[in-house]
């Protein structure tokens, strides 16, 4: 039975016909729905400067012409200046010919002071709130390399502690990087000098690379990174330490803004025991070449079975 047959007189006569009643109530429902939708989306009003048209349309790093790159660097400088009242020097440093960077870390010398961690944070403009660090120092009981026995949150009065050794871990700049392979948008890749970099403006924040990394080297900006103004390092590089945004990955890049300009990484310079060595493996006279050749017996690769071919080695004095 149709409804209109039930009430034959409702469509004609009567102060309010069934149809117009339905229209009114449908309209009221639609209005309520829209109001509820608006209320639901209200938090978005705080979403200022989430992105700009310029950023939205920006091309992938590999497709930016020098002219476009100049404008991008200009934009970054402008944004940094707005936020930190400090005009940064933003460059896009390219890899040098005949250079492949390699890092070696002397476990016999490391005392676990974490100065490298803090120097890295300062050099690379990492967020202070929430804390974000590229280097993780693991305190290990002597006699094992089983990382599950390590302590990540040690806070003693004094280091080193008896019976322990310290193993700092950071990005291993693998020659066969699992993180690069899995990225769905090619936002991360390996450069000619062996550094695996991230285009922060291209990353969509899926964190697949983070799941793929066997060294726990990648970090995600779960919140908007906050760098204390007085700590900002104005010497910046596009693929390096320029400030990042919420929702993208970052990681150690061997201080690209320093090393591609002929300087040592910050973590190496600050190390009080000289446990950290860095250089060009393609240069036969480099210190790093000597260490890897001469200390070969006592050199080892973390998680060698992963087949990631790291450019980061650990070695022992004797």
């Amino acid at each position: 039975m149709s409804a209109s047959e039930n009430k034959p007189d409702s469509s004609s006569g009567g102060s309010m016909s069934r149809r117009s009643f339905l229209r009114v109530s449908a309209g009221a429902t639609a209005l309520t729905g829209l109001a509820a939708l608006a209320a639901g989306l209200a938090p978005l009003r705080e979403l200022s400067r989430f992105t700009s048209v310029e950023k939205f349309l920006q091309k992938h790093y590999h497709e930016l012409s020098p002219e476009q790159m100049k404008r991008v660097l200009e934009r970054i400088a402008r944004e940094v200046e707005q936020q930190y009242d400090l005009r940064p020097h933003v460059r896009d440093l390219k890899p040098m010919d005949g250079v492949e960077f390699v890092y070696a870390l002397n476990l016999s010398r490391c005392i676990g002071c974490r100065r490298c961690v803090h120097a890295c944070v300062a050099e690379n403009n990492q967020s202070g709130d929430p804390d974000l660090e590229y280097i993780r120092v693991v305190k290990m009981p002597k006699g094992t390399f089983d990382l599950t026995k390590g302590d990540h949150n040690y806070e003693p009065e004094e280091v080193p502690e008896d019976g322990y050794f310290y193993m700092p871990v950071q990005c291993h700049q693998c020659a066969n990087p699992p993180c690069v392979k899995v990225c769905p948008v090619e936002a991360t890749w390996q450069e000619a000098d062996g550094i695996t970099v991230i285009d922060y403006d291209w990353c969509i924040g899926c964190r697949y690379c983070q799941a793929a990394c066997p060294y726990f080297a990648r970090r995600f900006n779960f919140r908007k990174p906050r760098i204390p103004k007085e700590r900002l390092n104005p010497d910046m590089s596009y693929l390096g330490n320029r400030p990042r945004e919420s929702g993208v990955m970052e990681k150690c890049h061997f201080c690209i803004q320093r090393t591609r300009a002929g300087r040592y990484p910050a973590c190496l310079e600050v190390c009080p025991t000289g446990a950290r060595k860095f250089g060009n493996i393609l240069d036969p006279d480099s210190e790093i070449n000597y260490i890897l050749k001469e200390k070969r017996v006592f050199t080892f690769i973390l998680k060698e079975d992963q087949g990631t071919l790291p450019r980061f080695f650990y070695y022992l004095d004797k």
Binding site: A39, G40, A42, L47, R218, F222, R223, G247
Partner: peptide, 22 residues
């Protein structure tokens, strides 16, 4: 709508509004 509101919060705060970590 409640979910949409929560997602709007997440967009503003970042994924730090979830229980996920590095």
């Amino acid at each position: 709508l409640a979910g949409l509101n929560a997602y709007a919060n997440q967009l503003v705060e970042g994924l730090g509004s979830t229980g996920m970590t590095d």
